[in-house]
């Protein structure tokens, strides 16, 4: 049987946080309703690997984007440490100047025509994903005083269940902005925060070309659906 226990509270951000100014308008004031987990929650959308082209894991236009080229690679597993093949990982980020390819990002910083800014990958039979990208720049948060987001990469992940669906951000080791970032610091548990920080990993880099960073992801769930090689069993 598949099991989805509630998230351990301190390892996830609080729903309401004084550190993050908009939650007072947006976050629910009522406690969450505790309801049974049913077939509707232990199932969820699946994404066959054939649906995503390997080219979509390159955000750099074949290495032409400005900035420090990097490989972001990691393994997606469940709480029982089982690798999860066939998981869709989507990534998006600012360019090397800290500018997003997005109309709402009105800051006066250059766009890079060679930087796509977003990509997708589906995990292989060992649950591994890999992106070629550049290290993003820090950027100021509008109307926030003088808060700058540390360099980070946004990641969206679909497991095999509506319960395991997750969106997170990956941070870079040693950046002094991490410790003063309201979003990073919204996770109370220091160990859980440290797992949002990628680890330099030369074994996944490209020799004399792109620095490697490892970032493993753990999705909620135990005793997952049996999977055929490379993806969910039909």
């Amino acid at each position: 049987m598949v099991e989805y226990a509630p998230y351990p509270d301190a390892t996830q951000p609080a729903v309401n946080s004084e550190r993050y100014f908009r939650t007072s308008q947006l976050a629910p004031s009522q406690p969450f309703v505790e309801a049974p987990v049913t077939l509707s929650e232990i199932t969820g959308p699946l994404f066959p690997r054939e649906g995503v082209s390997p080219d979509e894991a390159d955000l750099t236009g074949g290495g032409k984007a400005l900035g420090q080229l990097m490989i972001l690679a990691g393994q997606v597993r469940d709480e029982d440490a089982r690798p999860l093949p066939g998981v869709l990982v989507e990534a998006w980020q600012a360019n090397a100047s800290g500018k997003y390819r997005h109309p709402v990002d009105g800051r006066d910083a250059p766009l890079d025509p060679n930087f796509v800014g977003g990509g997708r990958a589906v995990t292989d039979s060992e649950g591994r994903y890999r992106f070629l990208t550049i290290k993003p720049g820090a950027y100021p948060v509008p109307n926030s005083g003088n808060w700058w987001r540390p360099p980070h990469i946004h990641l969206s992940i679909y497991g095999y269940a509506f319960m395991s669906r997750m969106i997170t951000q990956m941070y870079f080791p040693g950046d002094p902005l991490n410790e003063i970032d309201s979003i990073f610091m919204s996770v109370p548990d220091a160990g859980a925060r440290s797992r949002l920080v990628a680890v330099p990993d030369t074994s996944v880099g490209l020799h004399e070309h792109a620095l490697g960073y490892g970032f493993d992801i753990v999705l909620r769930g135990r005793d997952q659906t049996p999977m055929e090689d490379g993806g969910p069993a039909a």
Binding site: P8, P13, A81, D105, M166, S186, V187, R195, L219
Partner: peptide
């Protein structure tokens, strides 16, 4: 082995060009 699920983080405002 028992692992702790990765912490979620806010979606942020700047994503819609990147997602289908």
């Amino acid at each position: 082995m028992s692992l702790t699920p990765t912490a979620s983080q806010t979606l942020g405002p700047f994503f819609n060009y990147a997602l289908p």
